[in-house]
Amino acid sequence: MLAFRPVASSSLSLPSGSYIYSLAAALPGLSLAAISSDDSLRLFDVRSLQVVSVTAGSTHENGVTTLTEYSGVGTEPGLLVTGGRDGKVRLWDVRSASGKPMLEMTTAKNAAVLSLACRAETNFIVAGTELVSSQAAVVFWDIRSPRDHRLQYVESHNDDVTELQFHPTQESVLLSGSTDGLVNVYDMTITDEDDAVLQVINHGSIHHAGFLSEHAIYTLSHDESFSIHPTTDPDNTAQGPGPIRFGDLRQHLSCEYVVQTLTSGQGTHLAAGNTTEKRLDLVPLMPNPQWQFDQSNVSRLLGAHGEEIIRSLYLDEQWGSIFTCGEDGLVRAWKPDDASAGQDDQGAAHQEEAVTSNTKMPQAKKDRKKPKDEKRFRPYHIK
């Protein structure tokens, strides 16, 4: 086991009791962005975790829900996209001091935006919406003409659209996932919605889904059930391999919740947390001979965020650091520590406390009374 130790911790000067929802690269190698329950969009330095700027104090009128990078070949660094419960999608330039978005797009009926995907090379931003008036939409905009959407699919899902992801190599192929249990794969060049659907996977209420490779799709439900499915070729009617169903990962990986997948030059890992044991494991997901978890090569974040749930991870390969944020209102930076790989969890907790106390950041809110609201039990479905 490779152990990671916390080297810095910060509250980002957020109000007491805040949750930090998500992290994204702002200026690669320099700063990261975070969205939180106070509706702010903040930048912080990757070395010190000190706040660089508050891009927006009020990112969306009724609460920010999602954050992603707008990056690609030929695009300028520092562009971020947010979605909110006000039905707005906003493009921000973090280098600007105006506090205003560069562009703003609006969903039909101001349906809350729950998921985003961007393909900067083709100027596309896509949003998945909450179910409103029996309709949940996947909406496409070309940022060169943001006033009106370019395309919209409104019949493929009948509940909240919680996940969107573009295919890694095929620019016109998009995946969507929903709490209706379905994952759909579309060809965006086809405007007729029925004809545009290339593949449908029925898995269960989708927390996350995406492409593991050109030919493999993973599905993760809100009750932590996990499967891997081969992509299908509409022009090939031959029977292909079936899905690999791992079932409930809480049993399979001895965890309590799953955060996300994390892909790097070292492959794909699944981030699985355990608040009782105060740890978060990065478990390699290996493709050969068939997709399986390599539990003999786990990387462990010792102490994690204590008894609080981690909401998001970001891997900075340039600095060799992992960044986490969570329901304790903290961002933490982690570095590998080979010497501590064999220490027990109690020693890890002592080490974490020592590191945190040596920083000049506000103390972790470990002892505050946690509100018993829906966020604690359904942490990834922001309401």
Rank of each mutant, 00 (worst) to 15 (best):
S9A: 15
S16Y: 12
S22V: 06
A24W: 11
A24H: 01
S31V: 04
A34Q: 07
S36P: 11
S36N: 11
D38P: 05
L43V: 00
L49M: 10
S53C: 01
S58M: 07
Y70L: 05
V73G: 14
G78Q: 07
L80A: 08
T82D: 09
K88F: 05
W92R: 10
A97D: 02
K100C: 14
A108V: 15
A108M: 14
K109H: 14
A117W: 04
R119M: 05
E121K: 15
N123Y: 10
D142E: 11
R144F: 09
R144M: 13
D148G: 14
H149L: 13
R150A: 15
Q152L: 11
V154F: 12
N158M: 13
E171W: 14
E171G: 14
V173M: 13
S176L: 04
S178H: 07
D180H: 09
V183M: 11
Y186N: 04
T191G: 01
E193R: 15
A196N: 02
N202K: 15
F211P: 08
I217V: 07
H222D: 15
S225W: 00
D233I: 06
N236R: 03
A238R: 09
P241T: 11
I244T: 03
T261I: 13
G267H: 15
Q290G: 12
F293C: 00
Q295A: 09
N297P: 05
R300P: 06
H305P: 05
C325V: 07
E327L: 10
R332P: 00
D338S: 00
H350R: 15
M361V: 02
K366A: 11
D367F: 06
K370E: 11
P371F: 13
